[in-house]
Deep mutational scan, measured.
Amino acid sequence: ETGKELVLALYDYQEKSPREVTMKKGDILTLLNSTNKDWWKVEVNDRQGFVPAAYVKKL
């Protein structure tokens, strides 16, 4: 879809709370919100949640 910003997972991340999502290094995720410098909201496999901003980079 146009207008979607994507990020690349630089590291594996295992969710530690229900508000977070698990990702694997190399995953491409849809970026939903990056206003917080530490935690970015992403969508992966129809799930939305937060990942550490340092673990992903914008494509």
Rank of each mutant, 00 (worst) to 15 (best):
V56R: 00
V21I: 14
K16S: 10
T2I: 13
T35S: 15
R19P: 05
E43P: 00
G26C: 10
G3S: 13
G49N: 01
A9V: 10
W39V: 03
D12R: 03
Q48S: 12
W40A: 04
E20D: 05
V51M: 01
T22H: 04
A54M: 12
K25F: 05
V7W: 07
T30N: 08
Y11L: 09
K25R: 11
R47C: 06
D12S: 09
L10K: 05
K25L: 05
D46E: 12
A9T: 03
G26K: 02
V56N: 00
K24N: 08
L8M: 14
G26A: 03
S34G: 11
V51P: 00
R47F: 05
L29G: 12
R47V: 07
L31R: 01
Q14M: 13
N45I: 12
A53D: 01
F50H: 05
E20K: 04
V7K: 01
L59H: 05
K58E: 06
Y13I: 01
R19H: 11
Y55Q: 05
T35E: 14
L6N: 06
T22P: 06
N33H: 07
V21D: 00
P52N: 02
M23N: 00
Q14T: 14
L31A: 02
V51D: 01
G49I: 05
R19V: 09
V44A: 15
Q14F: 15
T22E: 04
K57D: 06
K58G: 05
Q14P: 06
Y55M: 11
D27P: 00
D27F: 05
K16A: 11
Y11M: 11
L32W: 06
V44C: 11
L59E: 04
M23W: 02
F50N: 04
L10N: 03
T35C: 14
S34I: 06
W40Y: 07
L29N: 01
Q48P: 05
L59I: 14
K41H: 11
A9N: 00
E15G: 15
D12W: 04
T22Q: 04
L29K: 00
Q48K: 11
M23Y: 02
E5A: 12
Q48W: 08
L8F: 09
D38E: 12
D27Y: 05
N45E: 13
K16H: 08
N36I: 06
Y13T: 01
T30K: 12
D38Y: 15
K25A: 13
I28C: 06
L59V: 10
L10M: 09
D46N: 14
R19E: 12
D38C: 15
F50I: 07
L8Y: 11
L10S: 03
L29Q: 01
E15Q: 13
Y13M: 01
F50C: 12
N36W: 07
L29W: 03
K41W: 14
L6R: 10
E15V: 06
L10E: 04
K25I: 06
L10V: 07
E20N: 05
P52A: 02
V42M: 02
Y55V: 06
R47D: 03
N36C: 10
E20H: 06
K25H: 06
K4R: 14
Y11D: 07
M23F: 10
L32Y: 04
L6A: 06
V7R: 02
T35N: 14
T35Q: 14
T2R: 10
E5C: 15
S34V: 07
K24D: 04
A54Q: 10
Q14N: 14
Y13W: 11
D46L: 09
K16F: 05
W39Q: 03
A54P: 08
Y11A: 10
G26S: 03
D27A: 08
Y55S: 10
G3I: 13
S17Y: 06
S17W: 06
G26Q: 02
V51T: 02
T35A: 12
K41L: 15
T2V: 13
V44P: 00
Y11C: 14
F50E: 04
L32S: 03
E43I: 09
T35H: 11
W39L: 03
E20S: 07
Y11H: 10
A53W: 02
N36Y: 08
D46H: 13
K37N: 11
T35F: 10
V56L: 15
V51K: 00
D12N: 08
T30P: 15
D38R: 14
G26M: 03
T30F: 13
K16M: 12
W40H: 02
L59M: 10
L59R: 03
V44I: 15
I28E: 03
K24A: 08
D27Q: 15
I28Q: 05
Y55E: 02
V51I: 09
L10H: 03
L31M: 03
E5F: 12
V56E: 01
W40K: 01
K58W: 08
S34D: 15
I28L: 09
G26P: 00
I28K: 05
K16T: 13
V7G: 13
W40C: 04
V51Q: 00
R19M: 13
K25P: 03
Q48H: 08
E43H: 06
W39C: 07
D12L: 02
D12I: 02
K16L: 09
D12A: 06
E5R: 12
V56C: 15
T22A: 07
S34H: 08
A53H: 03
G3D: 12
E1M: 09
D38Q: 12
T2C: 15
L10A: 04
L31K: 00
K16Y: 05
K16C: 11
S17H: 11
M23H: 01
N36A: 08
S17E: 08
V21H: 04
L31G: 00
V51E: 01
P52Q: 02
K4H: 12
D12G: 06
I28R: 05
L32N: 02
Q14K: 12
Y55G: 06
Q14D: 14
G49R: 02
E43Q: 13
P52W: 03
P18E: 11
N33E: 14
K24E: 06
Y55R: 05
L8C: 09
V21A: 05
L59A: 05
L8Q: 12
K4W: 11
G26V: 01
D27G: 04
R19G: 15
K58Q: 08
Y55W: 07
D27R: 03
V56Q: 00
E20R: 04
E20P: 05
N33V: 08
K24W: 11
D27T: 08
N36D: 15
D38K: 13
S34L: 04
L59S: 04
N33C: 12
V44E: 04
